[in-house]
Design a binder for these strands. Structure first.
Length: 891
RNA sequence: AGGCGUGUAGCUCAGGGGGAGAGCACUACCCUGACACGGUAGUGGUCAAGAGUUCAAAUCUCUUCACGCCUACCA
């Protein structure tokens, strides 16, 4: 009789997860020590926004990193997973600003100093949210080293890098056309602009010329005409040769501007005449530079029209458009309007329409840095996984433009530059200067802050203590792997490469693992407006971290989308339950054995498994261990999960545990002799399985581990493949026994044998060895096939009258036919099977008669086809015989 | 406009030159002493279309179609 349950019936993850996590953390198991031995394995977390909440992207990213970190920690590497958060300039400032506005406080009224203090307060209150949420996922981050991009040390790193790059002429200040977000009221970089295709209009407007026909230009933004300082045509355009050296009148302004000739202008677009607004269009800016045109600001930093717009001054640029067109029409200068589809830039933060405008900003000269970074990928010092991203990466790196790094915000790293209001001098220094070096007057610090991504770019070394020379920096840089979504290759990954190579003179990481983006069950991007956002915290509450992590990892292949379906998570939560119950089974038997002293497993039983099922599962475990290691090393998280799932469920539970039951429960002498060895083997195989599964399902495996082995699983050795356990013979034999079992089950099902009824299958086996095997190991199978005995067919024995047949490639199995079988239905089913067999036979025969096939196909392929043909034909014979029998039954 | 990617069972996807696979869903039966969050047996597909290479193509090549995504200075 089994003892009382050693474990509750299900895994209570809501109780167990926090308990296990705080134990790990309190025992310092996440903590890395530079002086510990072992090859370093280092990952820096992509720092989440300090005021953010856990979303699906984090959940996936962190799960994959934790799998790698736990695997390497168990392997014995000196493992560091750096924790930290990002100050997230615009995002955080906007959040705090909104919260203050709700209390009726305006940022500008508050003033810079007080506002920044409010943000710090905010960070203090909400900054640990995200870390708490990451803990719930089981992330084994080294919290003792947690960093924040605005920490003192990291701020020092930012300043040091800025000054160094400035000194090397890799940072400059200049008046350029930049992307301006009128709503955030700051400059943003090129990649922070999202282009969206819009159904827009192309407006044709007359620019009057003295003594000549009016020039008609086409524009999508008529409101910018107040900033026009020229009209451009192509020098090869025959229509406009007469305008050389002439001027035209900008509508509504009374201003004469020159007609310039430039091959940039596309003769075929619109009218071939282009209005030039250097202050508000990147191309026009370039044209303006090369033709030395003045620049007139028509749109202000808040998106309203400037005084240059005359009567329209002070109005929003988009809202005024209609009235401007009306005014043009009244003057007879509007020609026509055509629909036009074109891309319009939007701020990636606030979605408002970006206005290009000329402004004084700081820039990083990206060309030389990008070249070095691209080189590191070209020569393999950094590899991208999957490698298909390389082309996109090079495309961007080879055409990179300078990076506008100044932001007109208050929250962030203030630029270490000082201006002299009296003489205009600008200096960049590590320390605030006492006075202007030119005129000795007082200096003012540049009010701008740096792009958030500037400090993120330093993350792999700033978090390790740079610019100080620390043990961590020496031990852990370069880091090993960077895991992130492909959406921030340009924002972050490329810039870390540039900065790392520049400042550390070495790559920041050796491999970049780019994972998919999480979408909803229908492949739609999750967004608040669509209402399809799934909150990871709810998933964690409902299904637990292990099932959630397994779901994410099992879908993290080299694709771009990861469709998250609650049904799948539910499915894997059942897998957690399966593991839990396999443990209950194992423990019940192990505990029972322990109470009976004579059954205590002998140590030597561990070395050499005795029974066939034990030999088999040990051999299969070698394969699993090798596969798991291989897939983890190659970042094939999906295949790793698949291997674990298939083995655990279909080999370990469905077959191994069932096959050893006769040994564990049996009272025969043979069973007793094997029992101790089987129990020892069960313990060994199951603990290995727990260890192999731990990286992806840390909680349930750790919880169960203490019942099977000493110490924390988290720090246990990752199983190595015991190749000496490889046992092809046992795999072949068990394969045979499985075939017999399945055939009998199928026959039972086909002939509707009631579940309770025992059958007495007669098995005919061609091979003497297999016959002996069946005699010896047959008892293990009886329960699985619902038989009371298993009889070998005598030589030449055929199906007795009144029995039906099924067939296997190796022989035949008969089971008694029950009277309630519906002959018509069975005949129909067999007829279908027969048709398929005949088709297969025809195909195989055709192959074997094909001279080309015989000559060119590999010998083993041909041999295989021959065997198949024999098999098919044998089965066909049996089916015919059965059909004949049904014929006689019908009479 | 270029680049990348994807089209395989009702759904989500794996596979990747020699008999079309998994999970979920569905059908039938079963509470057998780990698990009904379970078990057994099934149903279900011109592997997007066309052409080519090959003894052999879902798989390789080309073309087409559909759907995604990214990059871009067409006003």
């Amino acid at each position: 009789m089994p003892l009382s349950d050693p474990l509750p019936k299900n895994f209570d993850f809501l109780t167990a997860e926090p308990k296990l996590y705080s134990h790990w953390e309190q025992q310092g198991m996440f903590r890395a020590e530079p002086d510990r031995p072992g090859p370093p394995f280092v990952i820096v977390i992509p720092p989440p926004n300090v005021t953010g909440n856990l979303h699906m992207g984090h959940a996936l990213d962190v799960t994959l990193q934790d799998i790698l970190i736990r695997y390497h920690r168990m392997k014995g590497d000196n493992t560091l997973w750096m924790a930290g958060t990002d100050h997230a300039g615009i995002a955080t400032q906007a959040v705090v600003e909104r919260s203050l506005a709700a209390q009726g406080i305006q940022r500008r009224e508050l003033g810079r100093e007080k506002f920044v203090a409010k943000v710090w307060e905010w960070k203090k209150t909400y900054g640990s949210n995200i870390s708490r949420q990451l803990r719930r996922l089981g992330a084994s981050l080294d919290w003792s080293r947690e960093r924040f991009t605005m920490d003192e040390g990291l701020s020092e790193a930012v300043q040091e890098v800025f000054v160094t790059l400035y000194e090397q002429n890799l940072i400059y200040r200049g008046e350029r056309i930049i992307n301006w977000c009128p709503s955030c009221r700051t400059a943003v970089s090129d990649i922070e602009v999202e282009h969206e295709t819009h159904q827009d209009h192309l407006y044709y407007i007359k620019y009057l010329a003295r003594d000549l026909e009016p020039l008609i230009v086409a524009t999508t933004r008529p409101e910018t005409l107040f900033g026009d300082t020229a009209v451009a045509v192509n020098p090869d355009d025959p229509r406009y040769q007469g305008y050389l050296g002439k001027t035209v009148l900008v509508p509504l302004t009374g201003r004469q501007v020159p007609v310039i000739f430039d091959s940039y202008v596309d003769i075929t677009f619109g009218t071939g005449a282009l209005k030039v607004t250097p202050a508000h269009d990147p191309n026009d800016f370039t044209l303006g530079r090369s033709h030395k045109l003045p620049s007139i600001l028509a749109i202000s930093e808040t998106g309203i029209l400037t005084d240059a717009a005359g009567p329209f001054a002070g109005r929003d640029r988009l809202e005024a458009r209609g009235d401007i067109l009306e005014a043009l029409e009244r003057e007879g200068l509007w020609v026509k309007t055509e629909p036009l589809e074109h891309a319009v830039g939007h701020c990636y933060r606030c979605r408002s329409r970006i206005e290009p405008l000329v402004s004084m900003q700081w820039f990083v000269k990206a060309g030389p840095l990008a070249e070095t970074a691209a080189q590191a990928v070209r020569d393999g010092r950094i590899t991208l996984v999957p490698a298909s991203w390389e082309k996109t990466f090079f495309e961007w790196m080879d055409n990179i433009r300078d990076w506008c790094v100044s932001r007109q915000l208050w929250w962030g790293h203030q630029i270490p530059a000082w201006h002299c209001p009296s003489c205009g001098a600008v200096i960049v220094e590590r320390q605030a200067p006492q006075a202007c070096p030119n005129c000795l007057g007082p200096m003012e610090r540049d009010p701008d802050v740096l792009d958030t991504w500037f400090s993120s770019a330093l993350w792999p070394f700033s978090t390790l203590g740079w610019p100080k020379d620390t043990p961590e920096l020496r031990r852990y840089y370069p880091t090993s792997v960077l895991v992130t979504g492909f959406d921030i290759i340009f924002f972050w990954v490329a810039r870390m490469m540039m900065m790392g190579l520049k400042l550390m003179d070495d790559v920041p990481f050796r491999q970049v693992v780019l994972h998919p983006l999480v979408r909803d069950a229908h492949g739609q991007k999750m967004s608040k407006s669509k209402g399809n956002v799934v909150d990871p915290l709810e998933i964690l509450d409902q299904y637990g971290a292990d099932a959630f992590r397994f779901t994410l990892a099992s879908q993290a292949g080299p694709t771009r989308d990861l469709r998250l379906d609650a049904k799948r998570i539910e499915g894997y939560s059942k897998f957690v339950n399966k593991i839990w119950n396999a443990a209950r089974f194992a423990l019940t038997n192990l505990n029972e054995a322990q109470t009976a002293a004579e059954d205590t497993p002998a140590p030597e039983a561990l070395v050499m498994p005795q029974s066939l099922p034990d030999r088999w599962i040990r051999s299969r475990l070698v394969g699993l261990t090798a596969k798991v290691t291989e897939e983890l090393e190659a970042f094939n998280f999906d295949r790793y999960c698949d291997a674990i799932y298939q083995f655990t469920w279909y080999e370990f539970c469905d077959w191994y545990l069932e096959l050893i039951k006769p040994i564990l429960y049996g009272s025969t002498e043979a069973a007793s002799a094997l029992k101790a060895g089987t129990l020892a083997n069960l313990r060994l195989v199951f603990s290995d399985l727990l260890a192999l599964t731990h990286p992806v399902m840390p909680f349930v495996t750790e919880e169960l581990w203490s019942n099977f082995a000493e110490g924390p699983l988290m720090l246990a050795a990752f199983p190595a493949a015991r190749t000496e356990d490889l046992d092809p013979e046992s795999e072949k034999l068990i394969g045979f026994l499985m075939d017999v079992t399945k055939a009998v089950r199928q026959a039972r099902s086909d002939f509707r044998v009631p579940p309770g009824a025992k059958v007495s299958p007669i098995v005919s086996v061609g091979d003497q060895a297999l016959a002996e095997l069946l005699t010896k190991e047959g008892p293990l199978l009886l329960k699985l096939m619902g038989a009371d005995c298993l009889r070998l067919a005598a030589a030449g024995e055929t199906a007795p009258k009144g029995t039906a047949s099924n067939v296997l490639s190796w022989g035949e199995v008969w089971t008694p036919v029950l009277s309630h079988v519906d002959p018509l239905a069975e005949a129909a089913r067999l007829g279908k099977e027969k048709a398929k067999l005949e088709k297969d036979i025809g195909a195989a025969k055709a192959k074997l008669q094909n001279p080309g096939y015989l000559a060119k196909a590999p010998a083993e392929v041909v041999e295989e086809t021959r065997e198949k043909l024999e098999d098919f034909e044998a089965r066909l014979t049996l089916i015919d015989r059965t059909l004949g029998m049904f014929g006689s039954l019908g009479e």
